[in-house]
């Protein structure tokens, strides 16, 4: 799995003072990716939905996504999103060598 594109999100994160990005992935989100992202902050999961939902919250950022989707939402307190590179690195570290 790797990041295919990152784009500013339409979600009104900015109305709440946050700046949103959509991180598009080459493969569907799975447990291994969630575990990798969990190392960046506090993981919360709702497993009882048909497709489990997760958030990872850290200082100045949050991630949210649904298992099986090929994208996740990233929100940042600062407009220049300094934590974004760490998040992309965490996803790439989870990359399958054959990918």
């Amino acid at each position: 799995m790797h990041v295919t594109t990152v784009e500013r999100s339409f979600e009104p994160c900015s109305e709440s003072g946050w700046y949103g990005y959509d991180v598009h992935l080459s493969e569907p989100i799975d447990g291994a990716l969630i575990d990798a992202l969990a190392a960046l902050g506090r993981l919360s999961r709702i497993r009882t939905l048909k497709r489990p939902f997760f958030t990872v919250r850290g200082d100045g950022f949050l991630l949210r996504g649904i298992t099986g989707d090929r994208f996740l939402r990233a929100g940042f307190a600062k407009k220049d999103a300094p934590e974004l590179s760490d998040i992309l690195s965490a996803i790439d570290a989870n990359r399958d060598p054959a990918d």
Partner: peptide, 23 residues
Amino acid sequence: GLSPADVGYILLHEYDIVVRTGY
């Protein structure tokens, strides 16, 4: 246990339901 944006995200992406979240 969930932020308004969390709920809106799940409603849209899991249930295809459009609401508004935030202020």
